[in-house]
Amino acid sequence: MALLWEKLNTLGTHVNIVNSLEGNLDLTLHCKSKDDDLGAHLLHHGGNFGFSFNPKFPIGTTLFFCSFQWNGEKLHYFDIFISGDYGRADCDYCNWSIFKPGPCRNRDPMQRVCFPWNK
């Protein structure tokens, strides 16, 4: 049913980020685009933060990036949505789990694609 809804959704793109850090750590995240600052959010283990937007045209001009921090460690950065990028933008509902080695996109219950942090 969820996959059918993803195909029928014409109301924009939805990004959902879940704190999946090992050790039940709290996660602070801050997501932005060129035009929108979504603010900083504290997520307890298992907590989530979501946002919605309408991708811009022409294709390839929408970018949302986020910083992630836990346990007072250095900030980690990741481009959570890049229009035109198959791994990060081929979804109406983009579900992400955050782990220490990097974020993972949950394509469906059986497929997770993980990425390294931005350098």
Rank of each mutant, 00 (worst) to 15 (best):
H76L: 06
L63F: 03
T62W: 01
C114Q: 06
G50M: 05
D35S: 06
L3A: 00
K56V: 05
C91A: 11
L11A: 15
F57P: 11
S33E: 03
L75I: 02
D36V: 02
G23C: 04
R112V: 14
K34S: 02
V18C: 08
L29I: 05
A89L: 11
N19P: 09
G84Y: 04
W117H: 13
V18W: 05
M1L: 02
P109C: 12
C104T: 12
K119N: 08
G39C: 02
F81S: 08
F53C: 10
D79P: 02
F64S: 07
H30I: 01
R88K: 12
K100I: 11
F51R: 11
T10Y: 15
V113Y: 14
I59V: 14
C91H: 05
F81M: 08
L38A: 01
G39A: 03
L11S: 15
N48L: 12
C114D: 04
G23I: 10
D79A: 07
Q69Y: 13
W117L: 11
F64E: 05
P103Y: 00
S83D: 13
C114M: 03
P55C: 14
P101Q: 12
L63D: 02
N19G: 07
N16C: 03
N24I: 00
N19L: 08
F57S: 15
L3D: 00
F53W: 09
L42A: 10
L4A: 13
V18Q: 07
C114G: 06
D35W: 01
R105I: 12
L21A: 11
H76M: 04
Q69I: 14
H30G: 09
N95L: 06
P109T: 06
Y77R: 14
G72E: 01
K7F: 09
R105Q: 10
Q69P: 14
S97V: 09
Q111F: 08
G23A: 07
N9F: 01
T62F: 00
S97H: 07
F49N: 09
L11P: 11
P116V: 08
F65K: 10
E6L: 01
W70N: 04
C91Y: 01
H41K: 14
H14T: 10
P109F: 14
R112T: 12
L75P: 03
L21W: 13
L27G: 06
K100M: 07
F51M: 15
L27Y: 12
F57G: 12
K32L: 03
F64M: 11
N118H: 12
F115W: 05
L27R: 09
K74C: 03
F57E: 15
